[in-house]
Design a binder for these strands. Structure first.
Lengths: 340, 340
DNA sequence: ACCCTTACAACAATCGATTGTCATTGGTCA
DNA sequence: TGACCAATGACAATCGATTGTTGTAAGGGT
């Protein structure tokens, strides 16, 4: 069916080992130019393509990377994946992509299957703040880079947004619009994106001298619209004055917040301003369009892939620290002046 | 670092071949129960995991499938991918996913690299009506299933929406709203999704006795918003009476159509009703929310994967014909009664 | 008591490519 | 002319698992 190295060697009248050397640019100098040419021609003629399994077995380099994402249908991740593939694909790597659904058990299990496939490296968009998979990777000293999320213990390099700055910018922006009572719908606290943004929110509130009692926080059970709606309702049902702005830990939560308003007879941005995170597609077209931070998703993927590639190649062993990329605030209709 | 079969065999005091048989449920009966148990225990103790490269090389089964999509950031595809992984992942397969960007050359090249990785089968969401990759696959008799798109020559099984029916339903629905001048923004004609829908549109117009001269068609250069906008402008700039409804070949085109209206001083649905295809996420939240056909994306992935799995397993060799899944019309704000 | 079957496990070949070692040839230099 | 060296390519071991073949001992039947 497909021709093997032995086929090429036979047709060229040389030993398979010689054919291998002729085909491989690095060892080609060990073979006479004439022989190289003959082998090359016959290889082309037979449409020879090396069997990556055999090569991988021998060289223990599979030119495959494992890419773990929580859920591809979350529009945050495809651009990251594309950034990764752009860099790694050009270098000859293919990506095995799996969805973990934020399930730690599933994550570990899928990681093990990828490991058995002898992936040369991993990119994880799935990290929990305490993540057994990350620990397993670090212990085995396997090249891997985190993206979007980071772990509490800095075992691996990570690429993420500059969340602390973003939260501060959001609060400053809301204050500039006259808001004083600002609430936060936080994401799950076992994820860095949920935890760091909440801590940054509390810090920013304090820093700006706002009254913490009037700046409540509700923790959503997931990064989805339903959870955002629930958390928002918690905040709005509290006794005392309602906030005039809500910072949500991502766009889906923000949408949930906006959805929750009608049942309180309120409207965004008239009564409540809402800010999200990430700027997933079409946030400019929903109603009201959403003010949010434009996470450089593609760039994050590219950056993470570059670090991983250099690590695998042995060009540079990265520091296990987080690279923070800047995210511009995109101002749209969901934010406006605080009601009088 | 990681333990091999030889390690397990040595520790258990048996020959590697015996250990292999003990570990493999199918050949386990060839080994004494006591020995099986000992091998199993030691394997667990050493955390033995078979090297899939070695196994794949020997058995020529990699338990890997190749998944070609045009662009993961198009929200149509992630749900399909998840459907595929749900079925195939459970059966022990991992998926190598690549983006072709509707570039035939890239498609062929990526296919070849996947082929060298000895994928057991392929799922293609990338097919052109005439597709060299599909031909190459069919010629080599490799298990593969098309999804969402089909080819002109039915070389491989395909899973797609029931486009002809959908188009007819759309036209009937618009007629029932009083529309008589209905235009079509078609997709690229080298894709079945562009071609079939256009042909179905022409057929439905004829069938319903509408005047073809008042039911113009414009062909968009791609399935994106910009191309939809351009095509729509072509239609609206024509001499004569403008259409009161436009059927777009997918949701992104429909959005482009809606965007184009302002420059003509028109509004959807007041002046023009718009219908899309696929019901990608958040079409219920844009303004106006979009009437469209809810393509069962996840189910398509599941179906395609099931067919592929059965084929690979040799359980059943599928007919190279297209399975059409039903798509309900989701009626939203973008369609309304024809203006008087 | 002998033959035959059965159960078991060791053995070895194999998948396809890579790579270090070794043998041969021809040429250079003293 | 003889020693030496460079160039070349054949050879063989190897990666790790699978699987058909072979050898051996125990057990059953007559």
């Amino acid at each position: 069916m497909v021709s093997t190295l032995a086929d090429v060697a036979r047709a060229a009248g040389v030993h398979p080992g010689t054919a291998s050397k002729a085909l491989n640019p690095d060892s080609r100098h060990l073979v006479a130019a004439l022989t190289v040419q003959r082998v090359l021609e016959i290889a082309a003629e037979l449409d020879y393509q090396p069997n990556s399994l055999a090569r991988g077995l021998r060289t223990s380099r599979s030119f495959t990377i494992g890419l773990l994402v929580p859920d591809l249908t979350n529009p945050l991740f495809p651009p990251i994946v594309r950034g990764v593939e752009e860099v790694l694909g050009a270098a000859g790597y293919s990506a095995l992509i799996v969805n973990t659904d934020n399930d730690a058990k599933k994550e570990m299990q899928l990681f093990m299957t990828l490991l058995n496939r002898r992936c040369d490296g991993f990119i994880l968009a799935t990290a929990f703040r305490h993540d057994p998979v990350v620990e397993a990777i670090a212990k085995r000293n396997i090249p891997a880079v985190l993206v979007n999320r980071s772990t509490e213990s800095h075992l691996l390099p990570a690429v993420a947004g500059d969340e602390v700055t973003e939260v501060r910018v959001a609060i400053e922006f809301l204050i500039s619009l006259g808001h004083r009572r600002i609430a936060h719908v936080a994401g799950p606290q076992d994820l860095s994106t949920g935890y760091i943004r909440r801590r940054a929110f509390l810090a920013a509130i304090k820093e700006k001298g706002l009254d913490p009692k009037e700046c409540p926080v509700a923790i959503a059970s997931g990064f989805n619209e339903e959870a955002g709606k629930d958390a928002s309702k918690q905040i709005l049902s509290r006794l005392g004055k309602r906030p005039t702005a809500i910072l949500a830990a991502n766009d889906q939560l923000a949408i949930g917040v906006i959805d929750s308003l009608t049942s309180f007879g309120m409207k965004c941005p008239r009564d409540i301003s809402v800010i999200g995170f990430n700027d997933i597609p079409r946030m400019d077209r929903i109603n009201p369009s959403l003010t949010t931070f434009a996470l450089p998703k593609h760039e994050m993927g590219v950056k993470a892939a570059q670090i991983l590639k250099a690590w695998i190649d042995g060009t540079s062993i990265p520091e296990p620290s987080t690279i923070h990329l800047e995210c511009p605030l995109v101002i749209r209709e969901s934010t406006g002046p605080a009601p009088a």
